[in-house]
Nucleic acid binder design. Structure first.
Lengths: 199, 199
DNA sequence: AAAATAAATGAATATTCATTCACTTAAAGA
DNA sequence: TCTTTAAGTGAATGAATATTCATTTATTTT
Protein backbone atom coordinates (compact mmCIF):
# COMPACT_ATOMS: atom_id res chain seq x y z
CA UNK A 1 0.00 0.00 0.00
CA UNK A 2 0.86 3.61 -0.21
CA UNK A 3 -0.63 6.68 1.46
CA UNK A 4 -1.78 9.80 -0.25
CA UNK A 5 0.64 12.69 -0.09
CA UNK A 6 -1.10 15.12 2.28
CA UNK A 7 1.18 17.97 1.26
CA UNK A 8 0.33 17.43 -2.39
CA UNK A 9 -3.37 17.43 -1.58
CA UNK A 10 -2.95 20.64 0.40
CA UNK A 11 -1.04 22.20 -2.49
CA UNK A 12 -3.85 21.39 -4.91
CA UNK A 13 -6.39 23.03 -2.61
CA UNK A 14 -4.31 26.14 -2.14
CA UNK A 15 -3.39 26.54 -5.81
CA UNK A 16 -7.02 25.98 -6.79
CA UNK A 17 -8.11 28.98 -4.74
CA UNK A 18 -5.17 30.97 -6.09
CA UNK A 19 -6.07 30.23 -9.70
CA UNK A 20 -9.80 30.77 -9.17
CA UNK A 21 -9.09 34.18 -7.70
CA UNK A 22 -6.58 35.11 -10.40
CA UNK A 23 -8.45 33.92 -13.50
CA UNK A 24 -12.01 33.76 -12.19
CA UNK A 25 -14.30 30.76 -12.42
CA UNK A 26 -14.51 31.32 -16.17
CA UNK A 27 -10.73 31.04 -16.63
CA UNK A 28 -10.19 28.03 -14.38
CA UNK A 29 -9.31 24.59 -15.73
CA UNK A 30 -8.16 21.31 -14.18
CA UNK A 31 -5.25 21.02 -16.62
CA UNK A 32 -4.02 24.48 -15.67
CA UNK A 33 -4.32 23.57 -12.01
CA UNK A 34 -2.22 20.43 -12.50
CA UNK A 35 0.42 22.42 -14.32
CA UNK A 36 0.45 25.07 -11.57
CA UNK A 37 0.94 22.30 -8.98
CA UNK A 38 3.60 20.54 -11.06
CA UNK A 39 1.69 17.26 -10.96
CA UNK A 40 -0.25 15.12 -13.40
CA UNK A 41 -3.89 15.90 -14.17
CA UNK A 42 -4.74 12.29 -13.43
CA UNK A 43 -3.59 12.78 -9.85
CA UNK A 44 -6.21 15.45 -9.31
CA UNK A 45 -8.83 12.98 -10.49
CA UNK A 46 -7.71 10.63 -7.72
CA UNK A 47 -8.48 13.32 -5.14
CA UNK A 48 -11.68 14.59 -6.72
CA UNK A 49 -14.46 12.95 -8.74
CA UNK A 50 -14.63 15.77 -11.28
CA UNK A 51 -14.19 19.50 -11.67
CA UNK A 52 -17.40 20.37 -9.87
CA UNK A 53 -16.53 18.13 -6.97
CA UNK A 54 -13.13 19.79 -6.75
CA UNK A 55 -14.52 23.30 -6.58
CA UNK A 56 -17.31 22.37 -4.19
CA UNK A 57 -14.99 20.47 -1.83
CA UNK A 58 -12.37 23.20 -1.83
CA UNK A 59 -15.04 25.82 -1.16
CA UNK A 60 -16.64 23.84 1.66
CA UNK A 61 -13.31 23.14 3.35
CA UNK A 62 -12.29 26.77 3.22
CA UNK A 63 -15.71 27.92 4.43
CA UNK A 64 -15.55 25.45 7.30
CA UNK A 65 -12.12 26.63 8.31
CA UNK A 66 -13.12 30.30 8.40
CA UNK A 67 -16.54 29.75 9.96
CA UNK A 68 -15.20 27.59 12.78
CA UNK A 69 -12.58 30.23 13.52
CA UNK A 70 -15.33 32.84 13.85
CA UNK A 71 -17.73 30.63 15.79
CA UNK A 72 -14.99 29.87 18.32
CA UNK A 73 -15.24 33.36 19.77
CA UNK A 74 -18.85 34.08 18.95
CA UNK A 75 -20.95 34.68 22.05
CA UNK A 76 -24.70 35.03 21.40
CA UNK A 77 -25.30 36.08 25.01
CA UNK A 78 -23.33 39.30 24.74
CA UNK A 79 -25.23 42.62 24.95
CA UNK A 80 -26.16 43.82 21.46
CA UNK A 81 -23.58 46.57 20.95
CA UNK A 82 -20.79 44.47 22.45
CA UNK A 83 -21.72 41.54 20.25
CA UNK A 84 -21.75 43.55 17.05
CA UNK A 85 -18.41 45.15 17.88
CA UNK A 86 -16.88 41.77 18.63
CA UNK A 87 -18.15 40.27 15.38
CA UNK A 88 -16.95 43.20 13.31
CA UNK A 89 -13.53 42.98 14.87
CA UNK A 90 -13.07 39.25 14.42
CA UNK A 91 -14.55 39.00 10.94
CA UNK A 92 -12.72 42.07 9.64
CA UNK A 93 -9.46 40.77 11.04
CA UNK A 94 -10.04 37.39 9.46
CA UNK A 95 -10.92 38.71 6.02
CA UNK A 96 -8.00 41.14 5.97
CA UNK A 97 -5.69 38.30 6.96
CA UNK A 98 -7.15 36.04 4.25
CA UNK A 99 -7.70 38.43 1.34
CA UNK A 100 -7.58 35.58 -1.16
CA UNK A 101 -10.41 33.75 0.61
CA UNK A 102 -12.39 36.97 0.87
CA UNK A 103 -12.27 37.42 -2.89
CA UNK A 104 -12.87 33.71 -3.46
CA UNK A 105 -16.11 33.72 -1.47
CA UNK A 106 -17.20 36.91 -3.17
CA UNK A 107 -16.83 35.13 -6.52
CA UNK A 108 -18.37 31.93 -5.24
CA UNK A 109 -21.45 33.68 -3.90
CA UNK A 110 -22.39 34.94 -7.37
CA UNK A 111 -21.40 31.79 -9.27
CA UNK A 112 -23.49 28.74 -10.11
CA UNK A 113 -21.65 26.86 -7.35
CA UNK A 114 -23.34 28.91 -4.64
CA UNK A 115 -26.23 26.47 -4.34
CA UNK A 116 -23.99 23.42 -4.18
CA UNK A 117 -21.95 24.80 -1.29
CA UNK A 118 -24.79 26.11 0.87
CA UNK A 119 -24.38 23.52 3.57
CA UNK A 120 -24.60 22.78 7.24
CA UNK A 121 -21.59 24.84 8.29
CA UNK A 122 -23.00 28.06 7.03
CA UNK A 123 -26.38 27.38 8.59
CA UNK A 124 -24.66 26.61 11.88
CA UNK A 125 -23.26 30.12 11.79
CA UNK A 126 -26.61 31.55 10.86
CA UNK A 127 -28.24 29.80 13.81
CA UNK A 128 -25.82 31.50 16.18
CA UNK A 129 -26.54 34.82 14.47
CA UNK A 130 -30.27 34.29 14.82
CA UNK A 131 -29.93 33.48 18.49
CA UNK A 132 -27.89 36.62 19.11
CA UNK A 133 -30.49 38.81 17.42
CA UNK A 134 -33.31 37.05 19.22
CA UNK A 135 -31.66 37.71 22.59
CA UNK A 136 -31.25 41.39 21.75
CA UNK A 137 -34.95 41.63 20.87
CA UNK A 138 -35.95 39.80 24.09
CA UNK A 139 -33.89 42.26 26.10
CA UNK A 140 -35.54 45.14 24.26
CA UNK A 141 -32.26 46.40 22.83
CA UNK A 142 -33.46 46.36 19.23
CA UNK A 143 -36.81 46.35 17.44
CA UNK A 144 -38.21 43.09 16.05
CA UNK A 145 -37.50 42.91 12.32
CA UNK A 146 -36.79 40.14 9.78
CA UNK A 147 -33.38 38.55 10.27
CA UNK A 148 -32.46 39.56 6.72
CA UNK A 149 -32.80 43.22 7.68
CA UNK A 150 -30.46 42.90 10.66
CA UNK A 151 -27.99 40.99 8.57
CA UNK A 152 -28.06 43.54 5.77
CA UNK A 153 -27.77 46.56 8.01
CA UNK A 154 -25.26 45.12 10.49
CA UNK A 155 -22.85 43.23 8.22
CA UNK A 156 -23.32 44.15 4.55
CA UNK A 157 -21.47 47.46 5.11
CA UNK A 158 -18.50 45.55 6.51
CA UNK A 159 -18.22 43.17 3.57
CA UNK A 160 -18.60 46.14 1.27
CA UNK A 161 -15.76 48.05 2.92
CA UNK A 162 -13.54 44.97 2.73
CA UNK A 163 -14.32 44.64 -0.95
CA UNK A 164 -13.38 48.29 -1.50
CA UNK A 165 -10.21 47.66 0.45
CA UNK A 166 -9.29 44.53 -1.50
CA UNK A 167 -10.11 45.98 -4.89
CA UNK A 168 -7.58 48.70 -4.22
CA UNK A 169 -9.27 51.32 -6.32
CA UNK A 170 -12.75 51.91 -5.02
CA UNK A 171 -15.71 54.21 -5.40
CA UNK A 172 -13.90 57.53 -5.29
CA UNK A 173 -11.21 56.46 -7.74
CA UNK A 174 -8.40 56.79 -5.23
CA UNK A 175 -6.90 54.04 -3.14
CA UNK A 176 -9.04 53.06 -0.18
CA UNK A 177 -7.38 51.52 2.84
CA UNK A 178 -9.53 50.09 5.61
CA UNK A 179 -8.04 51.28 8.89
CA UNK A 180 -8.93 50.23 12.42
CA UNK A 181 -10.47 53.67 12.91
CA UNK A 182 -12.72 53.59 9.84
CA UNK A 183 -13.81 50.09 10.71
CA UNK A 184 -14.73 51.03 14.25
CA UNK A 185 -16.48 54.28 13.22
CA UNK A 186 -18.60 52.38 10.70
CA UNK A 187 -19.38 49.70 13.26
CA UNK A 188 -20.73 52.38 15.60
CA UNK A 189 -22.91 53.71 12.77
CA UNK A 190 -24.62 50.36 12.26
CA UNK A 191 -25.08 49.97 16.02
CA UNK A 192 -26.74 53.36 16.08
CA UNK A 193 -28.95 52.27 13.20
CA UNK A 194 -30.24 49.19 14.96
CA UNK A 195 -30.21 50.10 18.65
CA UNK A 196 -33.45 51.36 20.11
CA UNK A 197 -33.20 54.93 21.37
CA UNK A 198 -34.49 54.99 24.97
CA UNK A 199 -37.79 56.87 25.15
CA UNK B 1 -26.07 47.48 -49.27
CA UNK B 2 -27.98 45.90 -46.46
CA UNK B 3 -28.61 47.02 -42.92
CA UNK B 4 -27.98 45.05 -39.81
CA UNK B 5 -31.04 43.45 -38.32
CA UNK B 6 -31.57 45.53 -35.18
CA UNK B 7 -33.97 42.97 -33.73
CA UNK B 8 -31.42 40.23 -34.17
CA UNK B 9 -28.77 42.34 -32.47
CA UNK B 10 -31.16 43.05 -29.61
CA UNK B 11 -31.95 39.35 -29.32
CA UNK B 12 -28.26 38.50 -29.02
CA UNK B 13 -27.83 41.04 -26.25
CA UNK B 14 -30.84 39.82 -24.33
CA UNK B 15 -30.03 36.11 -24.71
CA UNK B 16 -26.44 36.78 -23.69
CA UNK B 17 -27.56 38.19 -20.35
CA UNK B 18 -30.05 35.34 -19.98
CA UNK B 19 -27.39 32.68 -20.55
CA UNK B 20 -24.79 34.41 -18.39
CA UNK B 21 -27.26 34.52 -15.53
CA UNK B 22 -28.41 30.94 -16.02
CA UNK B 23 -25.03 29.22 -16.55
CA UNK B 24 -22.69 31.76 -15.00
CA UNK B 25 -19.64 33.24 -16.71
CA UNK B 26 -17.97 29.84 -16.43
CA UNK B 27 -20.73 28.11 -18.39
CA UNK B 28 -21.12 30.71 -21.11
CA UNK B 29 -19.98 30.13 -24.70
CA UNK B 30 -20.45 31.95 -27.99
CA UNK B 31 -21.59 28.76 -29.73
CA UNK B 32 -24.27 28.20 -27.10
CA UNK B 33 -25.38 31.80 -27.47
CA UNK B 34 -25.73 31.42 -31.24
CA UNK B 35 -27.76 28.26 -30.82
CA UNK B 36 -29.99 29.96 -28.23
CA UNK B 37 -30.59 32.81 -30.69
CA UNK B 38 -31.17 30.46 -33.61
CA UNK B 39 -28.50 32.18 -35.72
CA UNK B 40 -25.02 31.34 -36.99
CA UNK B 41 -22.00 31.82 -34.72
CA UNK B 42 -20.37 33.76 -37.50
CA UNK B 43 -23.11 36.37 -37.29
CA UNK B 44 -22.20 37.12 -33.68
CA UNK B 45 -18.64 37.73 -34.84
CA UNK B 46 -19.98 40.40 -37.17
CA UNK B 47 -21.50 42.22 -34.21
CA UNK B 48 -18.63 41.70 -31.82
CA UNK B 49 -14.87 41.43 -32.23
CA UNK B 50 -14.56 38.48 -29.86
CA UNK B 51 -16.08 36.92 -26.76
CA UNK B 52 -14.56 39.50 -24.41
CA UNK B 53 -15.81 42.36 -26.55
CA UNK B 54 -19.28 40.80 -26.53
CA UNK B 55 -19.47 40.54 -22.77
CA UNK B 56 -17.95 43.96 -22.17
CA UNK B 57 -20.25 45.69 -24.68
CA UNK B 58 -23.36 43.96 -23.39
CA UNK B 59 -22.42 44.86 -19.83
CA UNK B 60 -21.68 48.49 -20.66
CA UNK B 61 -24.91 48.92 -22.61
CA UNK B 62 -26.98 47.44 -19.81
CA UNK B 63 -25.15 49.48 -17.18
CA UNK B 64 -25.68 52.64 -19.21
CA UNK B 65 -29.38 51.95 -19.59
CA UNK B 66 -29.90 51.40 -15.87
CA UNK B 67 -27.60 54.20 -14.71
CA UNK B 68 -29.19 56.78 -16.98
CA UNK B 69 -32.61 55.76 -15.73
CA UNK B 70 -31.46 56.38 -12.16
CA UNK B 71 -29.58 59.59 -12.90
CA UNK B 72 -32.68 61.03 -14.58
CA UNK B 73 -34.39 61.46 -11.23
CA UNK B 74 -31.33 61.90 -9.07
CA UNK B 75 -31.21 65.28 -7.36
CA UNK B 76 -27.97 65.96 -5.42
CA UNK B 77 -29.47 69.11 -3.92
CA UNK B 78 -32.14 67.28 -1.93
CA UNK B 79 -31.90 67.29 1.89
CA UNK B 80 -30.04 64.21 3.08
CA UNK B 81 -32.91 62.06 4.32
CA UNK B 82 -35.09 62.93 1.36
CA UNK B 83 -32.27 62.11 -1.05
CA UNK B 84 -31.57 58.71 0.49
CA UNK B 85 -35.24 57.80 0.50
CA UNK B 86 -35.59 58.81 -3.11
CA UNK B 87 -32.55 56.78 -4.17
CA UNK B 88 -33.68 53.73 -2.25
CA UNK B 89 -37.09 53.92 -3.84
CA UNK B 90 -35.88 54.31 -7.41
CA UNK B 91 -33.03 51.82 -7.25
CA UNK B 92 -35.05 49.17 -5.45
CA UNK B 93 -37.88 49.57 -7.95
CA UNK B 94 -35.44 49.28 -10.83
CA UNK B 95 -33.65 46.19 -9.54
CA UNK B 96 -36.88 44.39 -8.68
CA UNK B 97 -38.18 45.18 -12.16
CA UNK B 98 -34.94 43.92 -13.72
CA UNK B 99 -34.04 40.90 -11.60
CA UNK B 100 -31.97 39.39 -14.41
CA UNK B 101 -29.82 42.52 -14.63
CA UNK B 102 -29.48 42.64 -10.88
CA UNK B 103 -28.03 39.13 -10.83
CA UNK B 104 -25.95 39.83 -13.93
CA UNK B 105 -24.21 42.81 -12.33
CA UNK B 106 -23.70 40.87 -9.14
CA UNK B 107 -21.85 38.21 -11.17
CA UNK B 108 -20.01 40.77 -13.25
CA UNK B 109 -18.72 42.62 -10.22
CA UNK B 110 -16.86 39.57 -8.97
CA UNK B 111 -15.66 38.37 -12.37
CA UNK B 112 -12.49 39.24 -14.25
CA UNK B 113 -14.56 41.51 -16.51
CA UNK B 114 -15.16 43.97 -13.70
CA UNK B 115 -12.04 46.00 -14.56
CA UNK B 116 -12.82 46.12 -18.26
CA UNK B 117 -16.30 47.56 -17.70
CA UNK B 118 -15.44 50.17 -15.08
CA UNK B 119 -16.06 53.13 -17.33
CA UNK B 120 -17.27 56.67 -17.56
CA UNK B 121 -20.94 55.91 -16.98
CA UNK B 122 -20.42 54.44 -13.57
CA UNK B 123 -18.08 57.26 -12.55
CA UNK B 124 -20.69 59.76 -13.72
CA UNK B 125 -23.07 58.21 -11.23
CA UNK B 126 -20.45 58.23 -8.53
CA UNK B 127 -19.79 61.92 -9.14
CA UNK B 128 -23.45 62.68 -8.49
CA UNK B 129 -23.30 60.53 -5.36
CA UNK B 130 -20.21 62.35 -4.15
CA UNK B 131 -21.84 65.72 -4.72
CA UNK B 132 -24.92 64.66 -2.76
CA UNK B 133 -22.85 63.54 0.21
CA UNK B 134 -20.69 66.66 0.04
CA UNK B 135 -23.80 68.86 0.17
CA UNK B 136 -25.11 66.98 3.20
CA UNK B 137 -21.78 67.52 4.98
CA UNK B 138 -21.74 71.21 4.09
CA UNK B 139 -25.22 71.61 5.51
CA UNK B 140 -24.10 69.81 8.68
CA UNK B 141 -26.61 67.00 8.20
CA UNK B 142 -24.00 64.24 8.39
CA UNK B 143 -20.47 63.87 9.72
CA UNK B 144 -17.49 64.03 7.32
CA UNK B 145 -16.36 60.47 6.55
CA UNK B 146 -14.78 58.68 3.57
CA UNK B 147 -17.21 58.27 0.67
CA UNK B 148 -16.74 54.50 0.88
CA UNK B 149 -18.23 54.52 4.38
CA UNK B 150 -21.35 56.41 3.29
CA UNK B 151 -21.75 54.15 0.31
CA UNK B 152 -21.36 51.00 2.38
CA UNK B 153 -23.72 52.08 5.14
CA UNK B 154 -26.33 53.74 2.95
CA UNK B 155 -26.59 51.34 -0.01
CA UNK B 156 -24.91 48.00 0.70
CA UNK B 157 -27.88 46.93 2.89
CA UNK B 158 -30.22 47.60 -0.02
CA UNK B 159 -28.27 45.51 -2.52
CA UNK B 160 -28.04 42.80 0.13
CA UNK B 161 -31.80 42.72 0.68
CA UNK B 162 -32.39 42.55 -3.05
CA UNK B 163 -29.99 39.64 -3.30
CA UNK B 164 -31.85 37.84 -0.51
CA UNK B 165 -35.08 38.58 -2.32
CA UNK B 166 -33.81 37.31 -5.68
CA UNK B 167 -32.16 34.21 -4.28
CA UNK B 168 -35.54 33.16 -2.94
CA UNK B 169 -34.17 31.22 -0.02
CA UNK B 170 -32.17 33.51 2.17
CA UNK B 171 -30.39 33.65 5.49
CA UNK B 172 -33.16 32.21 7.66
CA UNK B 173 -33.88 29.31 5.35
CA UNK B 174 -37.39 30.45 4.58
CA UNK B 175 -38.51 32.45 1.60
CA UNK B 176 -37.74 36.15 1.90
CA UNK B 177 -39.89 38.65 0.04
CA UNK B 178 -38.83 42.28 -0.04
CA UNK B 179 -41.93 44.36 0.62
CA UNK B 180 -42.40 48.10 0.35
CA UNK B 181 -42.63 48.19 4.13
CA UNK B 182 -39.39 46.31 4.85
CA UNK B 183 -37.61 48.40 2.28
CA UNK B 184 -38.79 51.65 3.80
CA UNK B 185 -38.08 50.52 7.38
CA UNK B 186 -34.54 49.56 6.45
CA UNK B 187 -34.05 52.83 4.62
CA UNK B 188 -34.99 54.71 7.80
CA UNK B 189 -32.43 52.64 9.72
CA UNK B 190 -29.58 53.71 7.45
CA UNK B 191 -30.74 57.33 7.61
CA UNK B 192 -30.64 57.08 11.39
CA UNK B 193 -27.15 55.62 11.16
CA UNK B 194 -25.76 58.49 9.13
CA UNK B 195 -27.75 61.51 10.23
CA UNK B 196 -26.20 63.70 12.90
CA UNK B 197 -28.26 63.82 16.07
CA UNK B 198 -28.80 67.51 16.96
CA UNK B 199 -26.83 68.42 20.09
C1' DA C 1 12.99 -9.23 0.72
C1' DA C 2 8.79 -10.10 -1.72
C1' DA C 3 4.03 -9.43 -2.51
C1' DA C 4 0.31 -6.55 -2.63
C1' DT C 5 -1.90 -2.37 -3.69
C1' DA C 6 -3.07 2.22 -3.94
C1' DA C 7 -0.78 6.55 -5.51
C1' DA C 8 0.97 8.78 -9.23
C1' DT C 9 1.87 9.39 -14.00
C1' DG C 10 2.24 10.58 -19.40
C1' DA C 11 -0.08 10.07 -23.03
C1' DA C 12 -4.21 9.52 -24.92
C1' DT C 13 -9.55 10.56 -26.02
C1' DA C 14 -13.54 12.69 -27.22
C1' DT C 15 -15.72 16.92 -26.70
C1' DT C 16 -16.31 21.72 -26.59
C1' DC C 17 -14.39 25.95 -27.37
C1' DA C 18 -13.32 30.52 -29.93
C1' DT C 19 -12.65 31.99 -34.21
C1' DT C 20 -12.30 31.96 -39.46
C1' DC C 21 -13.56 31.44 -44.28
C1' DA C 22 -15.55 30.69 -48.67
C1' DC C 23 -19.92 31.33 -49.86
C1' DT C 24 -24.97 32.93 -50.34
C1' DT C 25 -28.55 36.34 -49.63
C1' DA C 26 -30.97 40.55 -49.26
C1' DA C 27 -31.58 45.22 -49.87
C1' DA C 28 -29.95 50.11 -50.98
C1' DG C 29 -28.59 53.07 -54.59
C1' DA C 30 -27.32 53.53 -59.58
C1' DT D 1 -33.62 46.51 -63.23
C1' DC D 2 -29.20 45.52 -62.13
C1' DT D 3 -25.00 46.29 -59.56
C1' DT D 4 -22.85 46.73 -55.36
C1' DT D 5 -21.98 45.69 -50.77
C1' DA D 6 -22.49 44.45 -46.32
C1' DA D 7 -25.29 40.98 -43.67
C1' DG D 8 -25.67 36.49 -42.84
C1' DT D 9 -24.40 31.57 -43.19
C1' DG D 10 -22.68 26.25 -42.62
C1' DA D 11 -18.98 24.03 -42.26
C1' DA D 12 -14.52 23.98 -41.00
C1' DT D 13 -10.06 24.89 -37.93
C1' DG D 14 -6.98 24.28 -34.31
C1' DA D 15 -6.51 24.94 -29.53
C1' DA D 16 -8.21 23.95 -25.01
C1' DT D 17 -11.21 21.41 -22.34
C1' DA D 18 -12.63 17.45 -19.00
C1' DT D 19 -11.82 12.95 -18.24
C1' DT D 20 -9.74 8.12 -18.82
C1' DC D 21 -6.35 4.43 -19.14
C1' DA D 22 -2.46 1.46 -19.32
C1' DT D 23 1.53 1.67 -16.91
C1' DT D 24 5.03 2.78 -13.42
C1' DT D 25 6.32 3.91 -8.65
C1' DA D 26 6.48 4.06 -3.77
C1' DT D 27 5.23 2.25 0.51
C1' DT D 28 2.97 -0.80 3.69
C1' DT D 29 2.23 -5.53 5.10
C1' DT D 30 3.59 -10.08 5.13
Amino acid sequence: MRNRDADKQQLVKQKAIELLVKDGFEGFSVNKLAKACGISVATIYIYYKDKDDLIVQVAIEEATRLTNEILADFNPELPFAEGIRQQWRSRTKQLLENPMSAVFFEQLRSSTYQDKVHGSIVSQFKDAMGKFMHNAIERGEIDPLPLEVYWSVAYAPMYNLIRFHNEGKSIAGRNFKLTEEIMSQTCELVIKALKKTPA
